[in-house]
Amino acid sequence: MGFKLLSKLLVYLTASIMAIASPLAFSVDSSGEYPTVSEIPVGEVRLYQIADGVWSHIATQSFDGAVYPSNGLIVRDGDELLLIDTAWGAKNTAALLAEIEKQIGLPVTRAVSTHFHDDRVGGVDVLRAAGVATYASPSTRRLAEVEGNEIPTHSLEGLSSSGDAVRFGPVELFYPGAAHSTDNLIVYVPSASVLYGGCAIYELSRTSAGNVADADLAEWPTSIERIQQHYPEAQFVIPGHGLPGGLDLLKHTTNVVKAHTNRSVVE
């Protein structure tokens, strides 16, 4: 069995187990497998329904001669939608809004960016022009300005110390501490036991640490421990890039980060 097929099978099995364990909360999309990078042309966006009122959005972007996937989250909030992270750029984010209108038909009224990198804030200006209120932590807003990236308009308070959590509509926002970046936030959907790890969490097929220019490698494993301790009931975990899975993604990420750190020390 090929690795790609095995990865998709694991996603399907995880979703099936969740649907059985929580039949009222989960209505997993039966329309197909989780979209992969090879299936999404740059400039297009796919939506994948995880649970009743919960979707991931998947886009792709060219970077350094390669094409990478990027995940975000959409959560229903009454007759409105909360968006977590842009679709990595203005063109993708405009396509995301169009796809949401086509498939869901509810307005996106608020959006949260989970850290300051372009795959999370690139497209904020498109959201703002569409009347979406954009939010991020003060740290993310400051770092985005320093980096020359787009800056969300509103500040999220109460997320300055490791372990801080605040309720934001249908989700809980959690600051686990520094990891992929010093400002990275985690998003949890309690009604569906869905954990969105953003770039602080890796997919299972990833074996290298990737972009760690703004990471705190020493603190990252401790931050992941905080996530595990705060959300032990999480059933569906979405990484910032690639295929979702279960809580095993947290341990896998820790292993990859520690291996990278150990290699760096040896070198």
Results as ranks from 00 to 15, higher is better:
L143K: 15
K102S: 15
I20F: 06
I227D: 01
I238E: 01
P35N: 14
A111F: 08
T153E: 12
Y12T: 14
A213V: 13
L159W: 03
P107M: 13
I74A: 13
D164H: 11
A59N: 10
E172R: 04
L5R: 09
A200Y: 04
V194A: 07
D125V: 08
D79H: 15
L185R: 02
T261M: 10
P221T: 14
G2Y: 11
A111C: 12
P69M: 07
P23D: 14
E99G: 13
E145I: 11
F26Q: 10
D29M: 13
N255G: 11
N184M: 02
S38W: 13
L173P: 04
F174Q: 03
M18R: 05
A192C: 04
I40P: 15
L243P: 05
L10Y: 09
L24P: 10
S193A: 10
P221Q: 08
L81M: 08
V45L: 14
D248P: 06
A94V: 11
G197P: 10
P41K: 09
G65V: 12
A192N: 08
R167N: 06
K4Q: 07
G246C: 04
H241C: 00
E80V: 14
N92I: 03
G2P: 10
G197T: 04
H154R: 09
G43A: 13
A165V: 12
G210E: 10
S27K: 07
N211K: 07
R76D: 10
P221Y: 08
N262H: 13
P221D: 13
E267W: 12
A218G: 11
P23C: 11
P176Q: 01
P138I: 15
R141I: 13
D183F: 00
G105P: 10
A21N: 08
P152K: 02
S181F: 01
A259D: 07
N262P: 09
A179F: 02
S193L: 09
E99A: 13
F174C: 01
S208A: 10
A59P: 02
V212A: 09
L47S: 02
E172P: 02
G78D: 11
A218C: 09
A259H: 06
S22P: 14
P152G: 04
Q103H: 15
F26S: 09
L127N: 00
G65Y: 06
V112N: 03
H241A: 01
A200Q: 04
T207S: 09
V187Y: 00
G32C: 14
L250N: 00
E219H: 09
I84S: 01
G43S: 10
A192S: 06
R226H: 14
S139N: 15
S162L: 08
V266I: 04
M18G: 06
A94W: 12
A192F: 05
L127G: 01
V257S: 02
H180Q: 02
R120N: 13
P35E: 11
A51H: 06
I74L: 08
L217C: 05
A259G: 11
V67N: 11
V194R: 01
L185H: 00
W220L: 01
P232Q: 07
A19Y: 13
S205Y: 15
V28S: 08
V126K: 13
H180P: 01
E203P: 12
V37M: 09
P244H: 07
R120W: 02
S38F: 15
S162N: 09
R226P: 04
I58M: 10
Q49Y: 06
N92Y: 04
A94I: 07
T36M: 07
V146L: 11
S27P: 07
I17P: 04
I50P: 04
D118E: 10
K4S: 05
I100H: 00
V124W: 03
V257T: 08
A144N: 04
R110V: 12
A21T: 13
D164P: 09
T207D: 15
Y12G: 12
D29K: 10
Q228E: 12
